[in-house]
Design a protein around this nucleic acid. Structure first.
Lengths: 144, 144
DNA sequence: CTCCAATATGATACATGGTATCAATACGAT
DNA sequence: ATCGTATTGATACCATGTATCATATTGGAG
């Protein structure tokens, strides 16, 4: 079934970690990678189903869990506490500001956390691979 | 019913924002404040029910939503993506390391993000009130 | 202090999200 | 090409969170 060896770097990370590159996993990963960064599980389900209706609900959730455990994505809450929004961590990190008034999400780069991460690693003897930084407050429009 | 005017600072924040200080809200807040930082909705429900069985499910969830919208707490995912864990943001921020192997959570202070927050405020014209910083990786035990 | 309007509540029934189970299938190492 | 093992998809299930609405509580005005 899978004759295409042009796997994305993230797919290869899965294989390196000993996981099989199945159709379900590659499809979910592709949906996430083409989604633009923020996507709910309901949207993932829908888009996976469009791409390949034979893929089951369970596999989608299983893949989301797997990707989360590998820090490739990260579930986060925006409005409701009912459904998480999954955030891609392209280079092992993600940062955004959530407006507590209009719920707009503003992404930004350049978090400057490398120094902090390094300090924690030496101080606490941990090995950090990724991070998520969320600020909450008012966006430029709502701050006026 | 509420003859005790010794409200916690967070309760007063609710009143200042125009919300009524009801028994349900004060009970939920008290459970959170005495929980030690990380608590799931199921645990909140249970402990609220112990404290006052007359308080209904719905009010507990409504209060959790309200507190979240005010950045007094913040829902976060640890193991499962089924139930969030609520994290208190005592001084408007919270930081921890989640071990991706054993799921242990290590909290730390001194995030050094004030400078970054200030920079973002001037650069993006936003008004930030709080933040959550999560690192993922291996804890000291699992890193060996 | 009393009264009142507006806000919040609790009960119930409901919707939705996520999961356990398990026989059938596909991956990928050899 | 073969085979063991990881993974799948279907289903039925459970838990979490929510809409609804009649009732009750809050807190401020008078």
């Amino acid at each position: 079934m899978l004759h295409d060896d042009n796997f994305s770097p993230r797919a290869l990370r899965l294989r390196e970690a000993g996981h099989k590159l199945t159709n379900a996993r590659l499809t979910v990963l592709n949906v996430l990678e083409t989604s633009g960064g923020h996507i709910t599980s309901a949207e993932v389900l829908e888009r996976v189903s469009e791409a390949d209706p034979s893929i089951g609900r369970a596999s989608v959730f299983r893949t989301l869990d797997l990707l989360t455990s590998m820090s490739i994505i990260r579930p986060t809450y925006f409005n409701s506490s009912l459904t998480p929004t999954y955030v891609l961590m392209p280079d092992g990190h993600h940062h955004h500001i959530v407006c507590t008034n209009c719920n707009r999400v503003i992404e930004f780069e350049n978090c400057g956390l490398d120094a902090i991460a390094h300090d924690l690693e030496t101080r606490l003897h941990v090995k950090l691979t990724s991070h998520l930084l969320e600020f909450y407050g008012l966006c430029d429009r709502c701050a006026s």
